[in-house]
């Protein structure tokens, strides 16, 4: 399994269903991370101790951290660390899954431990989801044999996140996976980049997401996948790739790109070494394919 992301890990282990992941991802956008989840992840408290504090909070008007310190489960310093982590939005997905009843906190703890053991990842690396951190994204590619292309792909995905935030969604969450099987999409917008480096880039999505994507980017009332909708999604890809080319040019690498193409009901056969960047937006999900 390639996925670096906890959501995919849970899916591939059969611990949650895709609809539960989607539900949790939607939910997590509006929530704040609870200290109990942070404490368990950090190894400061057991799930039973967290549960005990939660039960105490039903009776006394005190904060979680305050009670946990009083009980001697954590120190003041650990509480400060946990509060800092909370501000960084760590472990949001795990908490969302617990809050939505898709996992118990015990199941989450076990899954987190196995996940970290399997991938040797630190908490910081684990919490890359949704964060604009190019070094972490680069590490994902480097960890999986893309040492030479790691920086390139990392720059591309980092810029993608920035552009998604800039143009279509305040809080995108991306997952990076290896391209494993053929992809069929109702709407497929592609653009080739060529020169010293050759890349095939494409946005693949269903009709509903295509229309919403188009309306968001164009800031127009688009309700059908008509010519304007196609122009809009196409222009997003063109704009994103154009900025990528400018960045590469500033680093001394001159690249060119072909006009974007919009197709319906296209199947892309597994091209071998390629990636699928699944972008979870507040209004739907699409795949960015990088070959």
């Amino acid at each position: 399994m390639f996925s670096q992301y906890f959501g995919n890990y849970l899916l591939n282990r059969g611990l949650i269903r895709p609809d539960q992941l989607t539900d949790a991802l939607e939910y997590q956008r509006s929530m704040r991370l609870k200290l109990g989840v942070i404490a368990v992840n950090a190894g400061y408290m057991t799930p039973a101790q967290v549960e005990e504090i939660h039960n105490m909070q039903k009776k006394v008007d005190k904060r979680f951290g305050e009670l946990a310190v009083e009980k001697g489960y954590i120190t003041e310093q650990q509480l400060e660390e946990m509060l800092a982590t909370q501000k960084q939005g760590h472990l949001m997905l795990g908490q969302a899954l617990v809050d939505r009843g898709h996992l118990t906190i015990e199941q989450l703890q076990e899954a987190l431990e196995n996940y970290k053991k399997e991938y040797g990842m630190s908490s910081r690396q684990f919490n890359v989801v949704g964060k604009d951190d190019s070094l972490q994204i680069e590490q994902i590619f480097r960890d999986h044999g893309e040492a030479l292309l790691g920086k390139l792909y990392s720059d591309y995905v980092t810029l993608l996140i920035k552009n998604l935030i800039r143009f279509v969604d305040d809080n995108p969450i991306v997952e990076i996976n290896q391209f494993r099987s053929d992809i069929t999409a109702q709407w497929f917008v592609s653009q080739e980049i060529y020169g010293k480096i050759n890349m095939f880039t494409a946005i693949a999505c269903d009709r509903d997401v295509f229309v919403k994507f188009a309306a968001k980017f164009a800031q127009e009332d688009i309700t059908e996948p008509d010519e304007l909708a196609q122009a809009s999604v196409g222009e997003f890809l063109n704009l994103h790739n154009g900025i990528f080319l400018v960045n590469m040019s500033n680093n001394g690498v001159e690249l060119e790109m072909n006009p974007q193409q919009v197709e319906q009901n296209r199947t892309l056969a597994n091209p071998g070494k390629a990636y699928v960047v699944t972008c979870h937006m507040t209004w739907g999900r699409f795949d960015m394919i990088l070959v």
Binding site: N238, L239, N241, G242, L245, V246, M248, S249, E256, M257
Partner: peptide
């Protein structure tokens, strides 16, 4: 253009473009 690379800028100016605006 969205692709205001150095080579595009130079080619455009050499060819006589009045100005170059990067999209958006």
């Amino acid at each position: 253009s969205s692709s205001g690379t150095k080579s595009h800028l130079k080619a455009a100016m050499d060819a006589g473009a009045h100005d170059f605006i990067q999209k958006p």
